[in-house]
Design a protein around this nucleic acid. Structure first.
Lengths: 123, 123
DNA sequence: GCCTTGAATCGAAAAACGTCAACATAGAGG
DNA sequence: CCTCTATGTTGACGTTTTTCGATTCAAGGC
């Protein structure tokens, strides 16, 4: 229940220069997947609901689904996309499945956006 | 040449709690537009090319277009989306059009992602 | 074993998106 | 003015996304 991820913003590439230096095609493609995952109102809300639990926090799907006026398969689909973007992970415990935000992802994303001081950087 | 924007991450809502507290539908919808704008490899590269000029920096479209293997109208279209997401703005000077990153947007976006310490926040 | 309940997967339909060719517009410079 | 170059806009087309209903899978309880 935790394969198919991306591993972008972290270890490998695209971690240091951020938006302050031109991205090459591969970096941009990888990063774009993450932003695309956040680029949907439903997924953003799901993320916020999960992230609001804090570092070690989890949320049961059974708490997420009823917060939307969408079918259960649709929510399940969005959760899958967030998982494929390496933003969250999940675990089944008994009948229920719990989701949490992967530690550090949001901070790395934020660091990418701000990057070094944006004042007269490369230019 | 600078109408149609969003004004999300800044003044009004969604500026303080960030992802650490559940977003309501409106906040999520607005924010999602910004992330969606960044959720495309071409637009991400455009942003990085523009942002790499630093705070007061600008880039001419004539520098952006040839960096991609895409038609000029397509680049123009992507630039428009970035502008509608209030990420960049532009100005025509003579024959050429120059784009720059709106000051503070990236920092505000980053602040939104990290929010207060993500450790045991609401829970 | 056989239901029941929670969640993921499948297949299909409608909507949104990315891209281009064709066209329109804005200035510069004769 | 007329033309040329640099950008933006329009309309169309194929692809991807979002969503649902139906089904399947997982785990517990009877």
């Amino acid at each position: 229940m935790s394969k198919q991820e991306l591993e972008v913003i972290g270890q490998d590439a695209a971690c240091c220069a951020g938006l302050s230096s031109p991205l090459d095609e591969d970096q941009a493609a990888e990063l774009a997947k993450v932003f695309k995952a956040l680029g949907d109102p439903v997924r953003l809300r799901l993320m916020s609901m999960i992230a609001s639990r804090g570092e070690g926090g989890e949320v049961c799907v059974c708490e997420l689904t009823p917060a939307f006026e969408l079918s259960q398969p649709t929510i399940s689909h969005h959760l899958k996309l967030l998982r494929q973007a390496s933003l969250i992970d999940c675990e089944r415990r008994g009948t229920w499945v719990y989701y949490w935000v992967l530690p550090g992802v949001l901070d790395r994303l934020a660091a990418f956006l701000t990057a070094p001081q944006t004042a007269g950087a490369t230019a």
